[in-house]
Design a protein around this nucleic acid. Structure first.
Lengths: 127, 127
DNA sequence: CTCCTTAATGATAATACATCTCAATTGATT
DNA sequence: AATCAATTGAGATGTATTATCATTAAGGAG
């Protein structure tokens, strides 16, 4: 059976504490290290993957960067800022991924998608 | 000024020859090596990045895999098959990325997007 | 055609990110 | 408290890619 460990709990806490920043595994490692100085990177990567598999966190594959994690599992979209390289949440009203299922007409079965917008985040766009 | 080299030409030829297979840099390297046995991986990676920057090829960032390249620069969509792990082209009639620009209402500027569908390719879906 | 400048290349080291291995630890059950 | 397997920590390993730098060669000038 799966066990509760304080490493896992601390990683979960870190994800909430870093909510909105879309931390990388390294970011999470740094944050958890403050509480558990002996924690291993391997544990952080392992647990984050486990959480992602369970749907406890979202795993974002970001080009030219390591994976980012999001403790907010509500469906929402992300923007990678070409200037500051941060990942921010964006809302796109009226965007319905289910429409895309039409693509099944070409013989494939679509079960999901990965979508990342590229551009400038509000902070960088304001400059 | 940018120079034409036979390495670049061969890489371009390889992209056309491998069109439809969405090769990785390694795949391109293997193919070009047949013609130019002394070519270096560094050259292949460098040239592919250069081409991607110029819009000569599309660079596809595929999760849990290296980057893939597509000599077909016509706008089209891709599916990553969860079974055979191949990247295939798909068409989604009526899918208009420009609608998504509405997201600019939240203060960001969107210049592009990366979209990858996940599921089963026609071959694997048929099994 | 030959010379010259410098972009481009090849070989390899270095980096980044992530996973694997395995002995030691520890959570949970008895 | 004893047991046993899940989990961890430390470091080796793996994979994809980029950096470094001496050498090569593209292509314009004479």
């Amino acid at each position: 059976m799966e066990r509760k460990t304080h490493q896992k709990q601390s990683i979960l806490n870190a994800l909430y504490a870093l909510s909105g920043t879309h931390p990388t595994a390294e970011n999470v490692y740094e944050h958890v290290s403050l509480l558990i100085p002996t924690i291993s990177r391997a544990t952080v990567y392992r647990v984050l993957n486990q959480f992602a598999g369970q749907g406890t966190v979202l795993q974002l594959h970001v080009p030219d960067s390591g994976d980012h994690y999001d403790g907010n599992t509500e469906p929402h979209l992300h923007l990678l800022c070409g200037s500051c390289k941060r990942v921010t949440d964006i809302s796109v009203p009226g965007f319905n991924p289910l429409e895309l299922a039409q693509a099944e007409s070409s013989g494939c079965r679509i079960t999901g998608f990965e979508l990342l917008f590229l551009g400038l985040c509000p902070d960088c766009a304001a400059e």
